[in-house]
Design a protein around this nucleic acid. Structure first.
Lengths: 128, 128
DNA sequence: TTAACATATGGAGTGCACTCCAAGTCAAGA
DNA sequence: TCTTGACTTGGAGTGCACTCCATATGTTAA
């Protein structure tokens, strides 16, 4: 696959794809004789993984380390697992924060909806 | 309350507290005759709200707009509600992304745990 | 009063994650 | 072959959200 195809398939800019490869967030991509990138099935797998992890805010640093470990073979299985467990813990914490914020948002939206009917907001607490 | 007290109470740096006020993410804080900040109960409510919203990644821009609207009185109730609804939608989308990532993380961790026992990882798919 | 410390301001600097650009190379159709 | 457009690299620039700094002024205990 060309970079244009991969870019469209995963909705990631070509600049970002090149950037990810340059910093080692994904392993080096195969090239044609001319030097153009030719994404294999496996490269696409890495792109998909990168997109998924980044969409959840997993830091670039952690993903670079994961990629480096993965390229060192089976003796890094434990290290990789620990890295993922650590990121999972952080992710769970973030999700809890977001749940709390969601509750607050729901509460405030509810108040505003009632206020739209009654016309006043005097009973709103700023920190509710 | 002094800025030091508020900083400790909400675990936000004094720099960040001043920054939030300067950019209008919270309304102006009362001052003593000498010009020092004297946080009221209401100011603390705003700080708490800011902390909660920011911890979920709600962008600064949106919070500045919300704060500006809130200071204009009851005629901005609908606008404020719409702003919150929009942010809630984005938050929900982010939470879904995170859920997907969590599932993938769980799946991969599970694979690594099994591999630790069997000693090989040959059956791992990169994009699983 | 005076030393020591807290707080004020405006502006510069940082870290992260892209994103854009210039200059050159490769590839495919007329 | 020539033109057009896709692709290459290294490096500079951007946007967001702080974070730090220098200098000055306020506050408090001795």
């Amino acid at each position: 696959m060309t970079i244009t195809e991969v870019s469209k398939k995963y909705d990631i800019s070509q600049d970002t794809l090149r950037y990810y490869e340059r910093i080692g967030l994904i392993p080096a991509v195969n090239r044609t004789k001319g030097g153009m990138r030719d994404y294999s099935e496996e490269s696409c797998g890495w792109i998909e993984l990168a997109k998924c992890m980044r969409s959840a805010g997993i830091p670039i640093e952690a993903l670079i380390e994961y990629c480096a470990l993965a390229q060192q073979g089976d003796q890094t299985i434990t290290a990789r697992k620990e890295l993922l467990v650590e990121e999972r813990t952080k992710l769970l914490e973030k999700m809890e924060d977001m749940k709390k914020t969601l509750d607050k948002l729901n509460y405030k939206i509810d108040i505003y909806e009632k206020a739209e009917v009654s016309g006043v907001l005097s009973w709103e607490k700023p920190n509710a």
